[in-house]
Amino acid sequence: MRKSFGDAIADDLRYALKACIGEENFIDMQPNKSNNYCCGGGGGFLQSGFPEERRGYGKIKDDQIKETGATYVIAGCHNCHAQIHDLSEHFGGGYHVVHFWTILCLALGILSPKERAYLGPDLKKVNVFHDEIEVFEV
């Protein structure tokens, strides 16, 4: 947001997300949009071999997420997804991290059991498309 398309696209994403999950289920973290903090997954941090500093950096993001009380976080890219997933496990927040495509397909009722790897137990069985498809956990 801060680096490319600005707050306008952040508002677009919020519009689409609220349409999927309902206005009352969306909680913005503080600060947000262009004033938000980076999660610390980008810039090569995930691959650079400094996990202590990377998680120290991400602690701010982890605190922001916990403060919302939300159980799901939408990640904007793969680096964010991997980093926030790690933060949730490392700092024990236990929140789930998903891409927006998962939530959109869930809301549309076209998300099969195989496409739910990042959903928690509370949503694994909700609105399942082709419930008969078996998933083998690895």
Binding site: R2, K3, Y37, C38, G40, G43, F45
Partner: peptide
């Protein structure tokens, strides 16, 4: 310094 590798290039500073 190792510090340049602790920057995520998020640009919060320059903003």
């Amino acid at each position: 310094s190792r510090w340049p590798w602790f920057c995520s290039m998020c640009q919060r500073c320059s903003r």
